[in-house]
């Protein structure tokens, strides 16, 4: 079974984000970019499925600028077999990404698409769901455990207040949550081998997809600065403040 893993190039998770002075977005100039951590988890899961013999080929696809090839190389170094870069310099919205992925799926015919539940840059949490809808495939989101058995995937989902186990027929779309696995370090020999693995170059036009934005970003602002706490001298004073100032009692 072929597994398709879409991966996104985002600002490295270790870096502190700066908002542009004109509030039009986040300043990415000269900052380190890495693979979205949820995508890393998706690649790791696909590699584990291949190691268990449940998957035969892993195709990593990224939609973004030329440098997104580096992100694909990271996936190849972790164990993906080949890559597809759909070159797009403009910001891509989840619907455009989902439409391109729909076309990639039509061409590649994977038995499973595993992707991160969301990217840490825009936190949209939409691509996987939109892709499933466009394909009319079953979806299992926020996976913390995936078991493949015959033509079926049993997925444990992380939901508010607990875990939900669902079974979906394959082919299906699965999105990964944080606790699904701990991604491996790409080994140095595998980084070298990844150089020799093929990456196909495509454009949205090759798939006949109109990637024009549908949304308008009105403004981007930093979260409010955290206010300092206050100390109280007595329990009575605390109860008083909780009642009269915080209004929680």
């Amino acid at each position: 079974m072929k597994v398709l893993v879409p991966v996104k190039r985002v600002l490295d998770y270790n870096l502190k984000v700066r908002v542009k002075p004109d509030q039009s977005g986040v300043d990415l100039s000269n900052l380190k970019m890495s693979m979205n951590p949820f995508c890393e988890i998706a690649v790791e899961e696909a590699v584990r499925l291949k190691e268990k013999g449940a998957a035969t080929e892993i195709v990593a696809v990224s939609i973004g600028p030329d440098q997104a090839q580096e992100t694909i190389r990271t996936a190849l170094a972790m164990g993906a077999d080949r890559g597809i870069l759909v070159k797009a310099d403009a910001e891509m919205e989840p619907l455009a990404v989902a439409k391109i992925l729909e076309a990639v799926v039509a061409e590649e015919a994977p038995g499973l698409v595993i992707l991160g539940k969301q990217a840490i840059d825009d936190d949209s949490n939409q691509t996987g769901q939109m892709l499933a809808a466009l394909l009319d495939w079953p979806q299992a989101t926020f996976a913390s455990q995936i078991t493949l058995d015959g033509g079926k995937a049993t997925v444990v989902r992380e939901v508010d207040g607990g875990l939900q186990t669902v079974a979906v027929e394959l082919p299906a779309v699965v999105t990964t949550d944080l606790r699904l696995n701990e991604p491996r370090y790409a080994s140095l020999p595998n980084i070298m081998k990844a150089k020799k693995k093929p990456i196909d170059l495509k454009t949205p036009a090759d798939y006949g997809v109109d990637a024009a934005p549908r949304l308008q970003v009105v403004k981007v602002t930093e979260p409010p600065k955290r206010q300092g706490g206050a100390k109280v001298k007595t329990v009575d004073e605390l109860v008083d403040k909780l009642k009269n100032e915080a209004g929680v009692l």
Binding site: E70, R73, T74, A77, Y185, A186, S187, L188, I191, M192, K195
Partner: peptide, 14 residues
Amino acid sequence: ALDAQTRAEFIAAV
């Protein structure tokens, strides 16, 4: 010798 991109990935991995 490694090409620039592979070298950068190497260093980042280590």
